[in-house]
Each structure stands twice: as C-alpha cells, then as structure tokens.
Nucleic acid binder design. Structure first.
Lengths: 218, 218
DNA sequence: ATTTTAATTTAGTTTTAACTAAATTAAATC
DNA sequence: GATTTAATTTAGTTAAAACTAAATTAAAAT
C-alpha cells in the first residue's frame, strides 16, 4: 500500500472527488467533468485508471468514491492548497480573490519541506483565508464549530463570519468591498423574498440569497 | 512577434540554451541533451519545433542559438529561478544545497504577481545566493564586477567570493561546511599540483583545482 | 411495458514530448 | 582520397490525457 507518484491531473481528480464527496455521498462522472472542466468521457477514462491504482472505488454507471489511500492523497493536496492560500494572503499580501488561482498551480509542485516550512512559519494554522479547514500534518481535518448560513439568522441576531463557500473571484471581490471577511461581525436586520439585510461595520446592505447562503456564521 | 505560451519543457530548453550560450557561441544537440537529461534525438525534435516558432535559429548539423524573443523568454525563466532561489534562502531559510531543486519546479508556475511581489519584498535584488545575476524586470542582466576563479589568485592575495559556479548539492554542501559563502573573504596561501591552500575564517584548507575553479572572486 | 431522455461508456483520434533503431552527415585519421 | 568514428537526423513507437462520435445503460414518463 505504497503511495505512488501521481500526475497533476490525477491529483486534481482526487482533490475534486474529495470536495464533491463532502456534499454528495457518491460522485457522478458528469459532476466531476463539470468541476474539472473536462468532458465526461475523459473522466470515465481517468477514473478507470485511478480505480486500477486502487485510489478510487468505481462502479460503472453508479459513481466513484475515494479509497483510504486516495483520500490521504486528496487531503495532502488540499493541505498544500490551503496552506498556500494562507501564506499568499498573509506573507505576500495577496487579496482574497487572487489566492486561489496561484495556489492551484503551486499546490502540485511544492516539496514536503516547503509545506513544513510555511506551516511552521504561520504557527501551524487550522483554517485558510476562506475559513476552510486545513488538514493537519497527519491529515486529520480540524473540526470547525458548527456553522449556519447567514440567511438562517433571526432578526436582531449578531454573528461572526467563519467561512465563505466560494472561490469565484468576482464574488470574493464584491464581498471584500463590503468589508466582509472571516471573523468579522455581522447583524441580521431583516429578510424578505429578495434577500437579507445585513449590518457590517455600521453599513447596511441587502445581500441576495444566492450570496447569503455562501456566508457561514457562528 | 507576440510571446506565445510555452510548455515547461520548452521553457527548460530555452533556459538551457541560454546558459550554454554563455560559454559556447553555438550550442550542440549533444550538449543540450546532456544538460536536459534527454536523448539527442528528442532534442532535435524539440529544436525543430522551437525553430518554427522562431524562438531559436537552427542550422541542421551546426547547432542552435536563441533569437531575440527566445532570449527574452529564457531570461524571464532565469529571473523567476534566481528570484525564487534568493527568496527560499532568505525568507524560508533553505540551505544552499536545497534551493535549486525547489526553484526548478516553481519557476514555471509562479505568476507575474508572485514574481513582482517577492522581488519587491527583497528590495529588487541583483544577485542570487550563488552570486548569479538576476535579470531585471525589463530583462537586462545586471553587470557583475569582473571576477576571477579562486585558483588564479597570487600567494598572499585576499579576495571576496562573488560567485559559486555549480548547482551540485553535494559540492554546495561541502563548501558551506567550510564556511565558504558569497561575500566571504578568503586568502590564498599557496598552490601546488594537487590544488590551492586557502584561508577561510582562520581555518586553512586544501581545495582541489576542480573545486577552486568553481569559486569566482573579486 | 414501451418509449423517451439523460447519463455513462466505448472506440477511435489528437497532441505533446519523450523514446529506440536505423540512416545520414561531418570530422578526423590513416 | 578512403575509411573510421562521432554527432546528428529521420522514421516510427509509446504514454498520458485530452477530445469526438457512436453505442449502451439506467431512470423517468407515458
């Protein structure tokens, strides 16, 4: 049960299967194809290969899920990605909308030493700039406090933003323009069928539901 | 004459052609093959492609040299590499023998923003940890003072180490064990047919010619 | 129970960058 | 000048990872 060296594509497949597994129990070819920006036929081909390598379990027409080894590798890639995002934000002054793309390219090429060094330099952080948990060195996912989407708040409630569930550059850009950030306080003013009214630093905005449900609070 | 997007392989070819051009006027297939760790036949194939792209000038059986555009691209890669080496050494505490391999992988994937950020953070440095010049933003090579190999010193001369002409991990490891580093002072004690005797920080060593000629001083 | 639709798989193709083996050219030696 | 040697090129192959088009399977609707 040795860890084989994988191509960047293969690492990306595993990473995306892992992320989709967090939502759906089993992952479809179509769903994967959409997330990877690739045709479903190409996914089938790669999945068959990963199945032979025993990194995924694959039932034709049914879907895939990761094996234990596959999950370990996915978590390693995810650890690289999220450590890099935080490093880019904190040490290279990248803005919220810039960190994802750079981390996406770097995650496949940094060494174990690089990973260990930036982790140490940042005091072994547990969450990245989006509030996503960073798997630990031994690939355990740190547990986050239980969170709710912002639109579930009752009128008058105040809460702290803990996670923003998007990598879309333009959404992140918009949110940061509203001074919305991880660990910021917000207050629910009210809601109607168009969205929710939130108070952020004495300013008040109407946030459409499509955005509000990306914002998870505590 | 637009800059096309190149594969990592192609960037590596251009970089190696550039480096070999510094020594030999025209670069042979064999020489390139050895440096790239690839068979000569493969080099011929790639060179023909780069020739079509007008990044190299290629005369069959005669050799290659870079076109102006090819050289610009080579210098860009070299700038990435050397900025990264310095960044890894100064900010991530990498040792002399560790920086090259990591930079080799990172140089192809970092963005212009990454490049600009670390350059700024380091005060737009002109030389990397081996003393190699870092091409500037507009891809000019900063001129280094004229240097001589250490074995050319006269007895009793003192000099400052400005450049170490190797990327070999074990050589670098050995040299740093002798407290030999860029901008360090050395004194020539004497030389015979086995090598040169140098004084470094009150310690005195016999350095074989094969090593001494890698050490360039001022 | 058919039929329709959507998802998935198969089969065959393309591109990139390596490879090997054989053929060719250039340079060096006799 | 002919021959040997070394370097280079050609031709054809391989592997990875994508693609398209056609075939198949599963699920939903009539």
């Amino acid at each position: 049960m040795d860890k084989p060296r994988l191509s960047e594509s293969q690492e990306d497949y595993l990473k995306h299967i892992f992320k989709l597994s967090e939502i759906h129990d089993t992952v479809s070819m179509q769903h994967l194809a959409k997330n990877l920006g690739v045709r479903p036929a190409s996914v089938t081909g790669m999945i068959k290969k990963l199945n032979k390598m025993e990194l995924v379990e694959y039932k034709p027409y049914k879907g895939v899920h990761l094996t234990d080894i596959g999950e370990k590798i996915a978590l390693e890639v995810l650890r690289h990605h999220r450590l890099l995002e935080l490093y880019l934000a904190d040490h290279l002054h990248y803005s919220w909308d810039e960190i994802h793309d750079e981390a996406e390219r770097l995650e496949h090429v940094i060494s174990e030493k690089f990973e260990a060094t930036i982790s140490e330099l940042m005091g072994h952080p547990t969450h990245d700039p989006h509030g996503d948990p960073i798997p630990s060195v031994d690939l355990e996912i740190p547990d986050s406090p239980d969170l709710n989407p912002a639109h579930a708040l009752e009128n008058g409630d105040t809460a702290t933003i803990r996670r923003v569930m998007t990598q879309d550059k333009d959404i992140l850009n918009l949110l940061s323009r509203l001074d919305l950030c991880i660990d910021c306080e917000i207050e629910m003013i009210g809601s109607d069928n168009t969205g929710v009214r939130l108070k952020i630093n004495d300013n008040q905005y109407l946030i459409p539901y499509s955005l509000a449900k990306l914002i998870w609070v505590h």
